[in-house]
Nucleic acid binder design. Structure first.
Lengths: 211, 211
DNA sequence: ATTTTTGTTCTCTTTTTGCTCTCTTTTTTG
DNA sequence: CAAAAAAGAGAGCAAAAAGAGAACAAAAAT
């Protein structure tokens, strides 16, 4: 997990800039030519470093596919402190209420994962005993699977989105609130689509103050 | 911890100003050229002084990375989206445990106030029913007064720091935990020094994941 | 089947870069 | 003015980084 060297960053930037210009992902030779290098081996050393940094997709075996960037690299999350998109509100029992114009929030490193994340605002009290209150913001790692016991954003029957604990068995999926006055719901696996997993939570006390 | 010399300040200013203009952190040679110097060694002397002053990031071994500013040095120049200092941990009944080298966390606008703020990490369960758990981070607005019902960082008898609800009357101050297994404590006004008021709270679920 | 392309691994050389040292020049200060 | 502090020039070192080029095997193209 070393920091990139200057040349590695240059090459990464070049790949990002010229992403559209290459009709197909460039081969090592093509990149060599574009960068004015004459040694494929030398370039390969740099690409390997970028693969280790998870900014370039590793090659599958010895397959020849060209050099393509990772999703992570495309977002430019390697260097600058980048905000996360605030995409909407989630209330138990309704689809996620999308926000009209998405804006970006600065989020501390420790509340993110290294995968793509986004921010939702929570409506309702279904997770109150887990310390997630009405109006809180949650940082969600975008992924379509989860481990039992994780808190997930789940879409039920393609219509209702909720934030709940998840327990999965081969024949059913339990979505469990953290609120004694609400009950867990059981669904068939095909009814439930995981949209992300909770990695961070934030609350503002500012609105309570007289500002 | 000496004061900076004139030239050192010039170089620091130059680094700050041109931070955006350099695509990558400048090397000693590049800085030399930009500053009109012809000796890398002389420049290095200044950079060393800036490293001692914790304004430039020290080099990791003999790694070549270029000259980059510390978070500390960056502060104040970039008025917009700026991190808050993470200054230590607060555990009920002990003084705030200061952190050795302060670093800065990106914090969403909504979790700050427009007054100076800092970040503490909470140790203990005294505010658990207010949704503030062990290990959570809290954003504190620096101020020495509070309104009843606010959550404050209070220093008792100049020795113990706690995070509690506050209720003040002319003759006594109540510090009230949000935990049924703990009791509120009453003090004389002169025993309690308010150090700040809670304006935001954050929690990471990342450590629970298998990373 | 044969040739070319492509990713990969080597070894070796050159360049860059942080760092130290000594000596000289300039600026500040009492 | 004289001593001290600060700034600079320049040489040299060791390690890191970058590059060249050869060789090889699997994949793709012919």
């Amino acid at each position: 997990m070393n920091a990139l060297t200057r040349r590695q960053r240059e090459i990464l930037d070049f790949l990002r800039d010229n992403q559209e210009k290459f009709p197909y992902p460039p081969t090592l030779d093509e990149l060599c030519a574009a960068l004015g290098m004459s040694s494929r081996g030398s370039l390969h050393k740099h690409i390997s470093a970028l693969i280790d940094a998870e900014l370039v997709q590793p090659f599958d075996g010895n397959k020849q596919g060209g050099i393509r960037l990772t999703d992570q690299a495309r977002r430019g999350e390697d260097a600058g402190e980048q905000g996360l998109p605030f995409v909407g509100r989630i209330a138990a029992g309704k689809p996620i209420e999308a926000i009209e114009n998405i804006h970006y929030m600065a989020v501390p490193e420790v509340l993110k994962s290294d995968k793509p994340c986004y921010v939702l605002q929570v409506k309702g009290e279904s997770m109150i005993e887990a310390g997630i209150f009405d109006g809180d913001w949650v940082v969600i790692e975008q992924r379509n699977y989860a481990q039992n016991g994780e808190i997930v954003v789940a879409l039920v029957d393609k219509s209702e989105a909720t934030l709940k604990y998840i327990e999965q068995t081969p024949d059913k999926v339990l979505l469990i609130p953290a609120n004694a006055s609400m009950v867990a719901m059981a669904y068939l696996p095909e009814q439930v689509e995981i949209q992300g997993v909770l990695v961070g939570q934030m609350r503002s006390y500012r609105s309570l103050l007289n500002k």
